[in-house]
Write a protein that binds this DNA or RNA. Structure first.
Length: 706
DNA sequence: CTCTCCCTT
């Protein structure tokens, strides 16, 4: 173990006798963080994400209304829900809010996550008659919040979800009908709806919720709404945010907007004032630099275990590696049951969440920031350890490389993390108010698809678009350059027919181009399968390789690579064999394939197939010749081609830099002359993932201007 | 001889 000369070590030893008090200072002043709102108390379910699970909707309803309540008189349920609505904090602002909307086109609402605005405001608007003038839309950054809000609202209104006035529309799930007036959806869904309804003519009110998350879709949507509002004078816009900073930016964008801060005026009974959040003392916090927060988190968890009453612990770390390190170190003390929790976790680990730990055994959940919003069991945890960090994808436009970057979490994230410890304590491994200010996604993303979407919606000069925060000009320029090379823009910068078609597909522009190109190579049937597989998950989420069965898993994987067909064709073979096995779960298990990824690929593929018809591409198939398939892929990915040089690769066009085929590729150590890759690893940007051999002459054929 | 946070059209 580390010697006692390490500042962290000393720190922890000094704190041993008196538990947290020495290291952590409780919040002294009242601060509206970590509010236990009535809604949070009532509506505690945080279901684990189950993509494409058709039984999900029902299970949400069942959780919202326990079995006993379902049997009770419908009227008494209705009465109970009606009373509950009045206890919500937001209820006190009902009239103020409606008045504000009546006399202003744009209203910004500042309120904490979970204060009831998502479920209540659309209902207030409906009750005030806005539903008679058009639809009431409410957008969310995430599909599952849209779905659970709609489920809750349909309960409160006593209507059947999706068959009456309340519905929702999220990826792969359209739960609406002609009767739907109150519609919950994701920002992305609404953005796509703008393709067919540029002025959102069917809506009378729109509420853009959780704008402070600053997702790509939210930012683009808000910018577009700025343009739409002048000609839609009878359209009301509400934007909600948890932070004042974001509210100010929105006000700046819309020349006149009314800001309603529903946090300040609220009053809480004393027991809701929190004395359960502990921060590091300033001098100690300075020791917690990026280098040792993992160590600090592990030690804090152990100290909680030694000094605090029973209750499960949730530790927020940043990635899978850290979780595995922490799991190993915490494994030693008995009476600790360790649960890892991260996206794309193997199914067998997921099962641990639902196992009840034996009496006297404390559960420690080691999670990434996924646990800020998803929570697999109904039971909460008593203790939260917040490292204060997360990992974020970032894009450098000048090198055109994507990387994962360690980032300090925002105040909003810290609040979400802390709110998981409703009745216990939250230990933050940083100073009070020492939050990060993460860049909005639009400033750290590859903008190719953003520019394509904007063009498709008639925004011809993206540098003059109303961004809440402008992206680097270089990123916009690089995006236009790639779109030109792909043939989506012509030499005067107009969207071409190819570009129009590409914009319809909900996948990355280069994949979208491959689909459009598959028309001329008569293999759209195969290409949409490959595109769906590549879009379904990142890197290794298709093949499963458990620690203890590496050899078996490798053998299973290599079966799809027979003939050295390349990783793209291997993915096609995986999809087709799964389909031939009737989409069987057993087949996935036997072949070490992750069924979650496959189900998602199937959903995406179905969607792509429907869109082929929309853009006039015939579903064509040439299963016995892989060359046309590879050519179609090359039409999208010529920019990712590399030529062999001795034992490594150099990009065909771009500053010299050696690349290697990733060891998990079917072509690892094969050294084909010329290859194309889907992506580079985010850590070193040196390893090509998903590699296929191509003929270098094709490059001239598919991208003469590149 | 290396291995990527979380979302979403």
């Amino acid at each position: 173990m580390a010697s006692s000369s390490s500042p962290v070590q000393v720190l922890y030893e000094s704190g041993k006798s008196d538990s947290d008090k020495k290291r952590f200072r409780s919040q002294e002043n009242y601060d509206d963080e970590i509010i236990v709102s009535p809604e949070q108390n009532e509506n505690q379910e945080r279901p684990v994400k189950r993509r494409s699970d058709s039984s999900y909707e029902q299970s949400v309803e069942e959780r919202l209304l326990g079995p006993r309540e379902r049997e009770a008189e419908p009227n008494s349920i209705k009465e109970k829900l009606k009373q509950e609505r009045k206890t919500l904090r937001i209820y006190g602002y009902r009239d103020v809010l409606l008045e504000a909307v009546e006399s202003n086109q744009v209203v910004v609402i500042v309120g904490d996550t979970g204060c009831g605005k998502t479920t209540q405001i659309p209902q207030y608007l409906y009750e005030a008659g806005y539903g008679k003038k058009g639809r009431i839309g409410c957008t969310q950054p995430h599909g599952f919040t849209a779905r659970s809000a709609a489920a809750r609202v349909s309960q409160e209104m006593g209507v059947k979800l999706g068959h009456d006035v309340v519905g929702y529309s999220i990826p792969f799930e359209d739960c609406t009908s002609e009767k739907t007036v109150l519609r919950y959806m994701t920002d992305g869904t609404l953005l796509h709806q703008l393709y067919g309804e540029p002025e959102l003519i069917s809506y009378s009110v729109l509420m853009v919720d959780e704008a402070h998350e600053r997702t790509l879709s939210t930012d683009i949507l808000v910018g577009l709404l700025k343009d739409i509002l002048p000609s839609r004078t009878n359209l009301k816009l509400l934007i909600s945010t948890a932070t004042l900073d974001c509210a100010e930016k929105i006000c700046e964008l819309f020349d006149s907007a009314l800001v309603l801060d529903i946090r300040i005026l609220s009053h809480y009974p004393p027991h809701h004032q929190d004395d359960h959040v502990f921060y590091l003392e300033a001098t100690e916090a300075n020791n917690y630099l990026e280098a040792n927060y993992l160590d600090a988190a592990i030690r804090t968890a152990l100290e909680i275990h030694e000094n605090e009453p029973s209750g499960d612990i949730l530790v927020f770390l940043t990635d899978r590696d850290e979780i595995e390190v922490a799991a190993q170190q915490l494994h030693q003390p008995h009476q600790l049951s360790i649960c890892p929790f991260y996206e794309n976790m193997p199914a067998e680990l997921e099962a641990q969440f639902f196992e009840t730990t034996p009496k006297g055994v404390r559960k420690v959940v080691l999670a990434t920031s996924i646990a800020e919003t998803f929570w697999p069991t109904k039971a909460g945890v008593n203790y939260v350890v917040d490292s204060g960090f997360c990992k974020n994808k970032s894009y450098d436009p000048s090198s055109e490389k994507e990387r994962l970057q360690l980032t300090r979490i925002s105040k909003a994230s810290a609040m979400l993390r802390g709110s998981q410890a409703l009745l216990g304590k939250c230990f933050r491994l940083y100073k009070r108010n020492d939050h990060g200010n993460p860049k909005p996604e639009v400033q750290r993303s590859n903008l190719t698809n953003v520019v394509l979407t904007l063009r498709h919606l008639g925004v011809n000069d993206s540098t003059r678009f109303h961004f809440l925060d402008p992206p680097p000009t270089e990123a916009l320029r690089k995006a236009s350059q790639l779109l030109f090379a792909l043939g989506a823009l012509n030499n005067v910068g107009e969207l071409t027919e190819v570009g129009e078609r590409m914009a319809e597909f909900p996948v990355d522009a280069m994949l979208s181009k491959a689909i459009v190109a598959s028309d001329q190579y008569k293999c759209s049937n195969e290409v949409i399968s490959i595109v769906a597989m590549l879009s379904a998950g990142d890197h290794d989420s298709v093949f499963h390789h458990p620690e203890d069965k590496q050899v078996d898993a490798d053998n299973a994987r290599m079966h799809f690579h027979s003939g050295n067909v390349g990783d793209h064709i291997a993915l096609l073979k995986v999809y087709n064999e799964w389909k031939d096995a009737n989409y069987s779960a057993q087949w996935c298990h036997e072949n070490y394939i992750q069924i979650r990824t496959m189900k998602r690929a199937r959903d995406i593929r179905d969607q792509l197939e429907r869109l082929l018809e929309k853009v006039g591409i015939e579903l064509s198939s040439n299963p016995f010749d892989i060359e046309p398939i590879k050519k179609a892929i090359t039409s999208g990915f010529f920019a990712h081609s590399a030529k062999v040089q001795k034992t490594s690769y150099i990009p065909v066009k771009q500053p010299p830099k050696n690349l290697h085929i990733h060891y998990r590729s079917g072509l690892a150590r094969m050294l084909p002359k010329c290859v194309l890759y889907h992506e580079l690893d985010l850590e070193t940007n040196q390893y090509m993932r998903q590699v296929t051999e191509i003929n270098s002459e094709w490059l001239q054929e598919v991208a003469p201007y590149y």
